[in-house]
C-alpha cells in the first residue's frame, strides 16, 4: 500500500507555544484515520497542515508523494507561489466544522464552482456530476436551494458533495459534526461511513468515539502536539496503552 498522506517531523508553533511537535504520520490509500484528542491538543492544526491552510515551521507534508506548499532546494524548503498551492489544494478535499458554504450561491453553484474555476472543467459536464453527487448525499431535490434554507446536517452534506466534486486524493474532515444539533449528527456520519465503504481515503478529526470505533482503520490519539499512540480502534479505544489516552476516553465515553 502506498502512503497517500505522509507527514515527517511536522512542527508548528503559534507565538511561543508549540502546537505540533515533531509529528510523523503515514496514511495508506483507502483507509479511514480518526484523530482523537483533548481540545488544544493540535488535532485541527495537524489536519490543516495537510492542505497548507496552516504553514509549518519544520518538517514536510506529502500527498501522493508531492511535497505540499513547498519546493525543496538543497536542504531548504521554499514556499510555493499561491497559485501552485491552490492547484495542490484542489486535489485535497476539506470539510469544515462550520460548513463554510457560500451563502449567496445555490447548492448546485456551491458544488460546481471549484471544479470549473480551479480545475478548468466544462461547466455542463460538472453540473451533471454535481447533481449525481447531491443525490448521493441525499439532497438531489435541493440543487436550487440556498444554503440558509437547509438544516445544518443538510449543509454539511452539501459541503461533503462540494469536496467530492474535485475528485480528491484524500478528504479531510475538521470536526464535521461539532456544529450540529445532536439529532442531525447521524445523517452526516452516515454519509462519511458510505464514503469509507467506497474506499475513499479519509482523515477525520472528531469527538465521536463511537464513530471512530465503527469506521476507523486507524485511531490516532494526539495530546500536547504529539502523537501519544496510534493503532486500530480495538487497541487504542478499547485497550489504550497510555494513561493519557485512558484519561481522555474516561472523560468522553
Amino acid at each position: 500500500m502506498t502512503a497517500v498522506v505522509d507527514l515527517r517531523g511536522v512542527t508548528k508553533s503559534f507565538g511561543g507555544h508549540r502546537v505540533l511537535d515533531d509529528v510523523d504520520l503515514e496514511l495508506a490509500e483507502g483507509t479511514v484515520t480518526v484523530i482523537l484528542g483533548p481540545s488544544g491538543s493540535g488535532k485541527s492544526t495537524l489536519l490543516r497542515t495537510i492542505n497548507h491552510l496552516e504553514k509549518i515551521d519544520r518538517g514536510q507534508v506529502r500527498v501522493n508523494g508531492t511535497l505540499i506548499g513547498y519546493r525543496q532546494v538543497g536542504e531548504r524548503l521554499h514556499e510555493l507561489p499561491e497559485r501552485d498551492i491552490l492547484r495542490q489544494r484542489s486535489r485535497i478535499g476539506f470539510v469544515f466544522q462550520q460548513f463554510n458554504l457560500f451563502p449567496h450561491l445555490t447548492v448546485l453553484e456551491n458544488v460546481v464552482e471549484a471544479p470549473v474555476s480551479a480545475q478548468r472543467r466544462r461547466r455542463s459536464e460538472v453540473e451533471v456530476e454535481a447533481r449525481a453527487l447531491l443525490a448521493r448525499v441525499g439532497l438531489g431535490d435541493k440543487a436550487a436551494a440556498y444554503p440558509r434554507q437547509l438544516s445544518g446536517g443538510q449543509q454539511q452534506r452539501v459541503a461533503i458533495a462540494r469536496a467530492l466534486a474535485l475528485h480528491p486524493d484524500v478528504i479531510l474532515f475538521d470536526e464535521p459534526t461539532s456544529a450540529l444539533d445532536p439529532e442531525l449528527v447521524g445523517e452526516v456520519l452516515a454519509v462519511i461511513k458510505e464514503l469509507a465503504r467506497d474506499g475513499a481515503t479519509l482523515v477525520v478529526v472528531t469527538h465521536e468515539v463511537g464513530f471512530a470505533r465503527e469506521v476507523a482503520d486507524t485511531v490516532v490519539f494526539l495530546d500536547g502536539g504529539r502523537i501519544v499512540e496510534q493503532g486500530p480502534p480495538e487497541q487504542v479505544i478499547d485497550h489504550p496503552a497510555h494513561a493519557r489516552t485512558r484519561a481522555f476516553l474516561d472523560r468522553v465515553l
Binding site: 492542505n51 485535497i92 464552482e113 480551479a118
Partner: peptide
Amino acid sequence: GQREAASALGIP
C-alpha cells in the same frame, strides 16, 4: 471562513 473555504477548494 468564506475565504478559507474558497482557498481550500483551490479557487484562483
